[in-house]
């Protein structure tokens, strides 16, 4: 089950957190994984080392997902070196939080440039190669906040909700080519992004999680592995919530 031998994958924002866990998990199952990162080369090296420790392998792909030309070049290069591309995970995201009243134009623009445009650039470059392979899995990592909304996260929530509409459309557009598109919506996951929250807010959020714990990046990676696998071939256009019951 969930064997990815022979598959070539790319995971954006894979230097840390959920992206790293997804990269390691896909590599462990046999995929060659392109580890994208924007700035933190050292962390990306650690991801690659973890992939190798897990018995897998891959390569580093430094580029900014909001740079359309850079995304296309990196994806095409990976496919040219490895003979194709099969799995693309749009995970890179930023959260610029604050009351909408106080948000600058640039805060909104940056949020959408990375979270939405970045995912679409990746999808556009990838589906072309997936069509050639006659097999493809596009995944986007959104957030429970895209479904529930959250005070101080209007831009972030809007950008994450956008991924759901994109995935449903991609699912319809490329279904005839054996390409699926799905979204994973993590809840409150223990990562650098959530570690920045004050303790009081963390315990408040935890009260609302029926499973009574924070999620781990590995919880999310397991869902990604399923959706990236051959076994999930009849699942497309869906949102898989990995949130401990926080939103049901």
């Amino acid at each position: 089950m969930f064997d990815l031998q022979g598959r070539v994958a790319i995971v954006t924002g894979a230097s840390r957190g959920i992206g790293r866990a997804i990269a390691v998990t896909l590599a462990r199952q046999g995929a060659w994984v392109g580890v994208n990162y924007a700035r933190n080369a050292q962390a990306a090296e650690e991801t690659l080392a973890a992939m190798r420790a897990a018995g897998g392998d891959g390569e580093l792909l430094p580029f900014d997902v909001s740079d359309s030309a850079a995304v296309t070049e990196a994806v095409d290069g990976l496919a040219a070196r490895r003979g194709g591309l099969h799995i693309a995970v749009a995970n890179a995201g930023i959260a610029v939080d604050g009351l909408l009243l106080r948000m600058k134009d640039d805060d909104l623009a940056r949020t959408f440039a990375t979270n939405v445009n970045g995912a679409l650039y990746l999808a556009r470059a990838s589906v072309r190669l997936m069509m050639k392979a006659k097999w493809g899995r596009f995944l986007a990592v959104s957030s429970v906040v895209g479904q529930t909304g959250n005070v101080g996260q209007t831009a972030y929530a809007a950008s994450k909700a956008a991924l759901e509409g994109a995935a449903r459309s991609i699912a319809r557009e490329y279904a005839s080519r054996n390409i699926t598109a799905n979204v994973i919506a993590p809840g409150f996951i223990d990562t650098d992004m959530t570690a920045a929250l004050p303790d009081a807010m963390r315990s408040k959020i935890l009260e609302g999680v029926p499973l009574g714990r924070l999620g781990s990046a590995e919880d999310v990676a397991a869902a990604a592995l399923y959706l990236a696998s051959n076994e999930a071939g009849y699942v497309t256009g869906q949102v898989l919530n990995v949130n401990g019951g926080l939103y049901v």
Binding site: R128, M131, E173, Y174, S176, R177
Partner: peptide, 11 residues
């Protein structure tokens, strides 16, 4: 051919 196939051909 369908519309996707035309795009594939053009590519």
């Amino acid at each position: 051919a369908d519309s996707l196939a035309i795009v594939e051909l053009v590519l």
